[in-house]
Amino acid sequence: MSEQVINLTLKVWRQPGPDAEGEFKEYDAPGINTEMSFLEMLDVVNERLIERGEEPIAFDHDCREGICGSCGMIINGQAHGPMRNTATCQLHMRKFADGDTIVIEPFRATAFPVIRDLVVNRSAFDRIIEAGGYITAPTGSAPEANLIPVPKEVADTAFDAAACIGCGACVAACPNGAAQLFTAAKVAHLNLLPQGQPERWTRVQAMVDEMEAHFGSCSNHRECEAVCPKGISIDFIAMMNRDYLKAQFKNRRLASQSG
């Protein structure tokens, strides 16, 4: 651990409202302690802006421990910045050098309109979950928890998919503005588990259809996987593609619901 102080220049996207024009503004950020997190650096810059009578930079953030998925911005062209498997809040200033210019932009996608500065609206993700990202299990109707064994490998893989924090970096990094990784992670989580089988085909159909109402398509660039703070694999996208095709040809009235 080597505590240092560095001087930075920030170029930050400022946009006063959803319908307003935005522009980049340049700010000097001297005296930044390298022990700070990236968001703490922005806190410091904001404090100085307030002191100068300028409105602080708006950005979404909450838990600051990399799990709530609120924060997210494009730092030097990369979603969540230069460190792999790391959300913006867990990025620390020791990853930057004295004299660096850092360009900070909001996540860009047609489905993620800017609300203000670096704050974007990601509620299209909620619409995808509402379309089918659940298992219908009304409270009280559940069987005994150990009634259905789930092979450990299956449970572990389902967890790998379920680890998604819904931050939207996958969409932001995708040149197509596609939400395949987000959608596939939820489809895979639920479609892998025995509890998810009854709705397996309707789920994938409904979620993909909703996704495509807002987002682009997958060109297999793998940028999403590279920026995902949870390292979710694009194998889940392949799994979703397969289930989506199968869903088209399942005769849901007659055929077995399994496999």
């Binding site: 996608a109 040149p175 197509n176 503005g177």
Partner: peptide
């Protein structure tokens, strides 16, 4: 697909960083 993708992502980033995973081939299809 191209039309869909153009509609889904209309703005580019000012700072064009190197792609992390996407290679020359995938970007120039």
């Amino acid at each position: 697909l191209t039309r869909l993708n153009w509609a889904a992502r209309q703005k580019r980033y000012a700072k064009r960083s190197d792609y992390i995973a996407a290679d020359f081939a995938s970007r120039t299809m």
